[in-house]
């Protein structure tokens, strides 16, 4: 079922990674994505992989949840690595019909699969340890400079956090509506494409109607709780940079430096 996906979920905890400033986490996450795709040889790849493995251990979240989030994309990883495996240049090591495997192909396949895996683990490390509110709060603060060009920073952040809050609720609702229509003999899983699209109507219309009704209710509930936009709001969890954030920045900087040094010293393989 759709609801079982653990990707993007938050696991409350007390680890060092949980306690880091969410703004710092977002920035480091972005830096890390850049760096994985800048790792051009095995030494650099090893450094980036080791780094994320270290972070993963620090989160103290059971490994099985990371595996679950990987399960969703395992198909993409296999598909792209196989594709890369056969599209390498150079001397073939093995050949059959139009398929050939080269050292270049093997390298590409390894790099692609490791990069995607690291990417997913890194984003899981971020979302598992940062509550949606913290995340949107951090994005709101990071985007603050955009206010100068009249970008509605607070509103966008509020919309994001409401969306995150209501995704599980709407998924559950979709489930219920689907069951109800199936009980009336709706046929959702057979027929040609036009039939299938048509079969979505009895599910989508009630879903939209209910989403609008909810939106109206939520707006009223927020007003009842004295919500009047971003002006004058305070936050319970004030976020501020501390010693551990500095340490984390230094660690990330070292990894970046390491990758750059390796890239200069060792020839690229992909």
């Amino acid at each position: 079922m759709v609801r079982d996906v653990s990707f993007g979920q938050y696991f409350p905890g007390n680890s060092i990674i949980h306690k880091l400033d969410p703004r710092g986490k977002i920035l480091m996450f972005i830096a890390y994505i850049v760096i994985i795709f800048c790792a051009f040889n095995y030494a650099s790849l090893a450094i980036t992989t080791a780094f994320i493995a270290f972070v993963l251990i620090l989160t103290k979240i059971p490994f099985k949840f990371y595996l679950k989030s990987l399960k969703v994309i395992i198909f993409i990883v296999i598909f792209t690595s196989v594709l890369n495996l056969f599209y390498g240049a150079g001397e073939p090591l093995w050949q059959w019909w139009i398929l050939k495997i080269t050292w270049d192909g093997i390298n590409r396949a390894v790099f692609v699969s490791v990069r995607i895996t690291c990417l997913i683990i890194a984003s899981s490390c971020l979302t598992f340890t940062t509550s949606p509110t913290e995340l949107t709060d951090a994005i709101e603060r990071l985007m603050k400079p955009l206010k100068a060009i009249h970008f509605p920073v607070h509103e966008v952040a509020m919309m994001m956090s409401l969306a995150l809050r209501f995704i599980p609720t709407l998924l559950e609702e979709t489930d219920k509506i689907m069951s109800a229509q199936k009980a009336r003999g709706a046929n959702t899983d057979s027929g040609n494409i036009i039939k299938r699209v048509k079969a979505l109507v009895p599910i989508l219309i009630p879903l939209f109607v209910s989403a609008f009704r909810r939106a109206y209710d939520i707006a009223m509930a927020m007003e009842c709780r004295c919500y009047r936009g971003g002006a004058g709001r305070t936050r319970m969890k004030s976020i501020h940079m501390g010693a551990r954030d500095t340490v984390s920045f230094i660690a990330t900087a070292l990894v970046i430096a390491g990758v750059i040094v390796c890239n200069i010293m060792i020839p690229a393989v992909v």
Binding site: Y10, P12, S131, P132, T133, S161, L162, L164, R165, R214, D217, I218, A221, M222, R225, C226, Y227, R228, G232, R233, T234, R235, M236, K237, S238
Partner: peptide, 23 residues
């Protein structure tokens, strides 16, 4: 439809946050 945050305690904080109460 009344709970606006994804964590219970953050939801409860929503009202006082709107009033600008000290953290």
């Amino acid at each position: 439809n009344q709970l606006v945050a994804s964590i219970v305690e953050e939801d409860v904080a929503f009202g006082p946050e709107n009033l600008g109460v000290d953290p």
